[in-house]
Computed example of a mutant assay.
Amino acid sequence: MKLFQIHTEKQLISQCLKGNTNAQMTLYKKYAAAMYNVSRNIIKDDMRAEEAMQDAFLSAFDKLDEFKGEVTFGAWLKKIVINKSLDYLKKDKMYEKMASTDDLSIIEELEEFDITEQIEAIKKAMDLLPENYRVIFSLYYLEGYDYEEISEILEMSNTNSRVMLNRAKNKLITLLN
């Protein structure tokens, strides 16, 4: 039986700081699906994306006292998930793997597909992008970060992030044709 009901995210965070595991689970349930998608957009392996997302939550709960409320909790958590996902890429050296041209046969002309098939073709083509291109493409187009934010996250210059995004777009177009 619950003695009280937590109504706001601020209250949830306060309870998490006190070690309330029910509050942690509530926050986890609220954000898990969205944070998994963020991680999956960076790491194309479902299990590794799940692991990275789980590690990010553990890290967030460990560092919750560092959350100052300057941004929303979701935005703060998203940054942790992105960084943890990038760490997984680096650790696994997946960013060095290049997509095999043999895999291009799975993609047909988009004009023959309905919208669902077009989306699936784009997802498959994105999975064929080299990791560094897929990461920057996902951060910009799927997560909505601007060049400056991407530069900070990936620790590169603004110009380099623009160049890499342009190369990623061109590579994706090539894969789709």
Rank of each mutant, 00 (worst) to 15 (best):
Q118T: 15
E66M: 03
E111L: 05
S100Q: 08
Q24P: 06
D127P: 00
R134Q: 12
D114G: 00
N170H: 15
E152N: 13
I82K: 07
S59K: 10
L139E: 03
L128M: 06
K90G: 08
A125T: 04
Y145F: 05
K78V: 04
I42C: 00
L176W: 06
L129H: 03
V71Q: 09
D46H: 12
L165S: 04
F73P: 08
Y145R: 02
I136K: 02
D46T: 13
A168K: 04
S161I: 05
D103G: 15
N41W: 01
D146M: 02
E120P: 09
E131R: 04
E109N: 15
K84M: 05
F137C: 09
E50G: 11
L89Y: 04
I43S: 05
E148R: 11
N158D: 15
A60W: 07
M126L: 08
R48V: 14
I153E: 15
T159H: 11
L58C: 08
E148F: 08
E9P: 02
A121Q: 11
V71C: 10
D127E: 04
T8N: 07
I122P: 13
L12K: 04
G144P: 02
F4I: 11
A33H: 12
D92F: 15
L27A: 10
D62N: 09
K97M: 04
E120C: 10
M35W: 11
E111P: 00
I13Y: 02
V135H: 01
S59E: 06
E9K: 01
I119P: 04
A34P: 03
I80F: 09
Q11L: 06
Q54C: 07
K171H: 10
N177S: 15
L172V: 01
K79L: 02
M164F: 13
I150S: 14
F113G: 00
T72F: 01
I153W: 15
E50T: 15
F73Q: 05
S157K: 03
N132M: 01
L128R: 01
V81N: 08
L89W: 07
I136D: 02
L142P: 01
A125D: 05
I6Q: 00
R134N: 11
S161M: 01
M164G: 01
A23V: 12
K171T: 08
K91P: 04
F4D: 07
F57T: 00
K29H: 06
M25Y: 09
Q11E: 15
I115F: 09
T101V: 14
F61E: 06
L176N: 06
E51W: 11
N83V: 07
K18L: 15
A32Y: 07
K169L: 05
M53F: 03
K84P: 06
A32K: 13
L17R: 15
L89I: 09
E50L: 14
T116D: 15
S59V: 02
V38P: 07
V71P: 05
D103H: 13
L129K: 00
M98G: 08
K68L: 05
I82P: 11
L64S: 08
N41Q: 03
K68S: 14
A52G: 13
L154I: 12
M47F: 14
K84R: 09
I106A: 05
M25A: 12
S39Y: 06
I42D: 03
M53E: 08
K91L: 02
